[in-house]
């Protein structure tokens, strides 16, 4: 199921809906697993007090969800690099779609690599995260 350089071309696209109607409970689940208990993500009373409209997702939850699309595409244990910029907050109720677009195909020695541009958008089409990744692929 690994990607093959011979079957890929620049501008190929892979996309997945990575969360539908994000729940506050999933944000709490991420807080518990990651250890980031910042109340801004899990405590509505505090989040409003701190000047937000309510709790919002950890940026790293959005990156984790986006990473799921990425590993589903390139395969397990294939990533060399995965980087993102956080552009906009993700709120309970959001539905996120993550997309990888092939930007380059490279070969270093005998090893093929794919370079990907990454973007995750919410239900309004607004980018919440953009980034890049590099993965080892088969010939």
């Amino acid at each position: 199921m690994a990607l093959k350089a011979s079957q890929l071309k620049v501008a190929d696209v892979y996309s997945e809906c990575v969360v539908e109607n994000l729940t506050r409970t999933q944000i709490v689940q991420y807080a518990g697993a990651s250890g980031d208990y910042n109340p801004i993500h899990s405590d509505e009373v505090y989040a409003v007090y701190a000047g937000h409209k309510g709790v919002f997702a950890h940026g790293m939850l959005t990156m984790g969800l986006t990473g799921r699309m990425l590993t589903n595409y390139v395969g397990d244990a294939r990533l060399v690099k995965f980087g993102v910029r956080f552009l906009s907050q993700v709120w309970p109720g959001d539905t996120l779609t993550a997309t990888a677009t092939v930007t380059e195909l490279n070969k270093v020695g005998d090893q093929d690599f794919v370079e990907l541009a990454i973007a995750t958008v919410n239900q309004e089409g607004k980018e919440v995260l953009t980034g890049h990744a590099t993965a080892r692929i088969d010939p």
Binding site: V45, A50, G59, V80, K81, F82, V84, F86
Partner: peptide
Amino acid sequence: PSGIESGPPSATSLHAEQEYT
């Protein structure tokens, strides 16, 4: 709303970028 009397810290840092190698 906050267990700290001074309230929310005014200059909290935000996570702008993250990259793994």
